[in-house]
Design a protein around this nucleic acid. Structure first.
Lengths: 243, 243
DNA sequence: GAGTGGTCTAGACCACGAG
DNA sequence: TCGTGGTCTAGACCACTCA
């Protein structure tokens, strides 16, 4: 038994898909649409909420509801580098918002495998595509490993990643954990997304050949336009295959 | 300015976190809670909706609202194998629901890099944890590569993965794309999840040393209890590092 | 100030589950 | 049958945007 909400959402979705409502276009007011569909405003609004979490409609308080322009998808490349061998994420405009020294505690200390209270350098990076932010990255590096220049002048994200490739001992392993969750209120405002839009959360650990964790990173990407790609190469050796 | 919905959601969340409401316990009725918080039922219900998408509360029509038991997290291991070198996902009870022959078309043909209309074998697998389903996997293999036994008697998921390790030419690359989206109505009922709970969708391509795609898989995992872990090892050679 | 969305109310009626 | 949640209504009042 389809609810009125779903019937209306389906109809509006179809109107958008067929171009009768164009990207960027403002929808009729909620009051008008409610009258058109012969439902109350809460019912119409619940239909719009469906389209909102689907990323098809954007609500702007005081202005109206708008058909969202199709978003270019953001692709995160796992393994610490992009397919062409460049450092990952170097093609996006990325802005380092903040570089600070903090002390490891709780989950962060566990991730970096350092004692609680160890000094860390935090890089807070906000990725942009034009005006819109599309990624929030918090990178943590043990202080003795961080480039000393980083604290004098903010280092861009690319700087951190390219610097990592020059490590001694060299980088040996990247471990990335991907999960889905709702954004925190802070992430909601920073990324300018709806609080009901799930995000792709990636926790990255990078270790050198000595087994030391040289970087831990927490990445947050909007779920409606983010992909993460991981490529594993099998190496043939004398005893079989290895991931 | 915190809305009443958020105030109520925060309070109930706290009651659950501190154990004043225990896992599995039934909440007071919505009418009772609405009276207790001095709000109308729609307002109270919107607060419960918040907790529902957070996975803290489960609504059961005709019975009541229940505190969800903490779910064991499901970890998908990328790269085609689990950390111990075993085939991935071999520790979960996995059930092959269906094995069929279909023909490649659209996105699937692109994924497998075969012409439209090519015969494929589809393995439809449902992973379980006890009574609850926790993963839906659709595996596609070109028919000439699929074990002929597979069509006589259903092959379990483990069978497919172990069989892949014995390929000639051997497996050379696994490429996995992770994204977030809302479940389709079919996935909602198969996985028994809310239609508003985002899922982790993984598209996997496996190629042999000749570059032929020997398997494409579409995995769907509930976002509230699924993680995916990817590990990349850097191999040191004479000219530098390689992912 | 006019028009928009954001929130909330106090009910109504229906569908489901258990006794 | 009774209590539960599911859906919906008709309207109120507030907050934001823009002329």
């Amino acid at each position: 038994m389809p609810s009125r909400r779903d019937v209306i959402a389906d109809d509006l979705r179809d109107r958008i898909a067929t171009g009768r409502l164009k990207p960027g276009e403002r929808l009729p007011s909620e009051a008008y649409l409610a009258a058109q569909y012969e439902v109350s405003t809460p019912t119409l609004r619940s239909a719009l909420a469906v389209l909102q979490v689907e990323g098809l409609v954007e609500k702007v308080h005081g202005k109206g509801n708008f058909v969202r322009r199709p978003l270019r998808r953001v692709t995160y490349t796992g393994g610490g580098r992009a397919p062409d061998g460049q450092a990952a994420a170097d093609t996006v405009l990325s802005v380092t918002v903040h570089t600070t020294r903090i002390r490891a505690r709780g989950h962060l200390a566990t991730l970096l495998k350092v004692p609680t209270g160890s000094p860390l350098t935090e890089f807070l990076c906000l990725g942009h595509e034009g005006e819109r932010p599309h990624s929030l990255t918090r990178i943590y590096v043990p202080c003795d490993l961080a480039p000393t220049a980083a604290l004098r002048e903010p280092l861009p994200y690319e700087g951190v990643t390219t610097w990592l490739t020059q490590l001694r001992p060299p980088l040996a392993e990247v471990r990335e954990r991907v999960s889905v969750r709702l954004p925190t209120p802070e992430e909601t405002s920073t990324l300018r997304i709806s609080s009901s839009l799930a995000v792709l959360a990636i926790t990255r650990q990078m270790a050198d050949t000595a087994g030391r964790v040289v970087e831990a990173a927490l990445l947050v990407l909007p779920g409606d336009r983010a992909d993460a790609v991981f490529t594993t190469h099998y190496v043939i050796d004398e005893k079989g295959t290895e991931g």
